[in-house]
Amino acid sequence: MAFNLSVNGATHSVDVDGDTPLLWVLRDVLGLTGTKFGCGAGLCGACTVHIAGVATRSCLTPIESVGDSSVTTIEAIGATPAGSALQRAWLDLEVVQCGYCQPGQIMSAAALLRETPKPSDADIDAAMAGNVCRCGTYQRIRAAIHRAGA
């Protein structure tokens, strides 16, 4: 079945089954491999993208449910004020260890900063609770979000 998607400001036509997860359309069909597969159950946050500005787990989102909504991935989040500030803070504070979870972390953090420009620790903990970092860089992630919001 053919679907038209708006991804990172460009329109793409894809021919996939309607129940195909957005994650696989992004990675396998469109070649946008920044969004990662983690658990496939929406529990780890590695696959987080923005759909109409809302942080969404792409591994659980069937392509047919996206409709006309715009999708933003880690490849384009740096073009937004929050995304750019986060990427700078991530580098300045050396947040990354293995890096696998970082696209999802940044996407969730960007959605938080868009809604709450100067979040408290409690705001950050609540917004980031669904993003798992096996390396345990949570304190640096929190510090980077605070810096980006400053």
Rank of each mutant, 00 (worst) to 15 (best):
residue 126 A to M: 02
residue 79 A to S: 15
residue 134 R to W: 06
residue 73 T to C: 10
residue 85 A to W: 04
residue 127 A to V: 01
residue 74 I to W: 03
residue 96 V to Y: 03
residue 93 L to S: 10
residue 134 R to Q: 05
residue 83 G to P: 03
residue 113 L to F: 04
residue 76 A to M: 11
residue 96 V to W: 01
residue 86 L to Y: 04
residue 117 P to L: 09
residue 115 E to K: 04
residue 101 C to Y: 09
residue 78 G to H: 07
residue 101 C to F: 11
residue 113 L to K: 00
residue 131 N to G: 05
residue 121 D to V: 11
residue 109 A to R: 01
residue 106 I to A: 07
residue 102 Q to N: 11
residue 103 P to H: 12
residue 91 L to I: 14
residue 120 S to E: 10
residue 99 G to C: 12
residue 129 A to P: 02
residue 72 T to M: 15
residue 137 T to D: 00
residue 89 A to F: 11
residue 110 A to G: 07
residue 86 L to T: 06
residue 123 D to M: 07
residue 102 Q to W: 09
residue 84 S to E: 15
residue 78 G to W: 05
residue 125 D to K: 06
residue 93 L to W: 08
residue 105 Q to F: 02
residue 123 D to P: 04
residue 111 A to Q: 05
residue 121 D to T: 10
residue 133 C to S: 12
residue 81 P to Q: 14
residue 129 A to Y: 00
residue 131 N to I: 05
residue 126 A to V: 06
residue 122 A to R: 03
residue 94 E to K: 12
residue 124 I to V: 12
residue 104 G to D: 07
residue 71 V to A: 07
residue 73 T to H: 04
residue 101 C to H: 10
residue 129 A to R: 03
residue 114 R to Q: 14
residue 137 T to W: 00
residue 90 W to Q: 06
residue 80 T to L: 13
residue 122 A to E: 13
residue 131 N to T: 05
residue 135 C to S: 11
residue 128 M to I: 10
residue 139 Q to R: 09
residue 93 L to I: 09
residue 105 Q to S: 04
residue 95 V to C: 04
residue 84 S to Y: 14
residue 108 S to R: 05
residue 78 G to S: 12
residue 71 V to P: 05
residue 87 Q to V: 12
residue 86 L to N: 02
residue 123 D to R: 09
residue 81 P to H: 13
residue 129 A to C: 08
residue 124 I to K: 00
